[in-house]
Write a protein that binds this DNA or RNA. Structure first.
Lengths: 205, 205
DNA sequence: CAGTATTTCAAACGTCTGTTTAAATCTGGA
DNA sequence: TCCAGATTTAAACAGACGTTTGAAATACTG
């Protein structure tokens, strides 16, 4: 088990927060070190340089985020569960909420690590969802409709994580409490299940 | 009519490209001036400072982007039209494709201008879509379901603009040609119309 | 304890970048 | 042509930032 109170661990922790807040390029080493209660030179001593620290932070974010749950209930129920979990995970106010914000920054301003992030953080969930969707549609998992429907669902969920600052301006009454998120998840689920059925019917013609 | 070959106009043009590429904070004045074939001091002479230039660029982006079309066809047809236009507009390879990328950067790392951007670039489209959706649902435009469904649709469309670099990694076969975009638009439309119907039925109980 | 390796620290270095300055150049009117 | 204002230019400034350095402090080992 890794210790998490030595300088190296504190740096990763602090760097995760800062990188998630302001992105790689805008993150200041002096800021990170101050939060980690470490000297400015600590980053270079423990990691070599800023980019290597970032890579290390990503590895931790990926590790934390990869606890994807599965089950073998009927597909429709699993979809509801999947949506709820994904939505909660993306909007969880608890630490570390790194992952979502890191991804946002990676999309706005990709670093060389984007490939790894996608493959390790996103691909597993995407493939799982696509399997689920293909199951409901009754098509193979690599069918075009499976991709399209999977993205329709991901798009809706991700919207509430990534577009949050915009959503709250457009619709100030919306809250992001656990209850409200569950309501949103149910909305997305029924909306999407109906959409899936429509696509399925279209497919069968 | 504004001239568009003097230094001031060239600066706005160049700055739009650079800001959209790398975001406000990462954009270098020297880079902008080089593209505009102007001296480093030109920005400060013509606009005062970097932030005022950015504000000016946003005003132009907003102006360009605000050509939202309306019609009085039946609601379902208008939705299809709306989705297609929105999706095309966000993925249009033609210049200026500033707006979408600017928004992405604003979300990742908001500047004080975010409020203006939302109100002038997004709000009109959002209200239009919400009206449309409320019409189909048979509820008032400020009904919770209208908001939720509008965001379900926006989320799907925006996904293909903002998540593009991720999508192409998850699903390399997908193209972003006009044809393909129209296909996607049709998918989102049928998917969403079915979703809307489901929500409507749920509402009527 | 002595001696070696590891870790921390304050200070400084070199570069990048937004901004300023003051001279040079251009423009349009008298 | 001459002048006044507007515009452009090269150079420099000042602060921020990633990185390096060499010494001091700490931990480990025989």
């Amino acid at each position: 088990m890794e210790p998490n109170d030595d300088t190296r661990s504190r740096l990763i922790q602090a760097a995760g927060e800062v990188f998630a807040d302001v992105g790689y390029r805008e993150a200041k080493i002096r800021d990170i070190c101050a939060r980690a209660d470490a000297n400015v030179a600590a980053v270079n001593y423990h990691f070599g340089d800023k980019l290597k620290l970032y890579t290390e932070v990503l590895r931790h974010a990926i590790y934390i985020e990869s606890a994807v749950s599965e089950s073998n209930a009927p597909a429709k129920g699993r979809l509801a569960f999947f949506v709820e979990r994904l939505l909660r995970g993306m909007n969880d106010p608890a630490r570390p909420a790194w992952a979502t914000r890191l991804m946002l920054h990676e999309m706005a301003q990709p670093t060389p690590s984007l490939g790894d992030v996608v493959e390790e953080m996103i691909r597993p969930k995407y493939d799982l969802l696509r399997q689920l969707v293909a199951n409901i549609l009754g098509v193979p998992a690599n069918h075009r409709s499976a991709h399209l429907c999977a993205h329709s669902i991901i798009g809706q969920v991700r919207h509430y994580a990534i577009g949050r600052c915009v959503i709250t301006r457009l619709w100030p009454e919306l809250e992001f409490t656990t209850d409200s998120l569950d309501q949103i998840a149910r909305h997305i689920t029924t909306f999407s299940l109906a959409g899936l059925n429509a696509i399925k019917k279209e497919q069968e013609k």
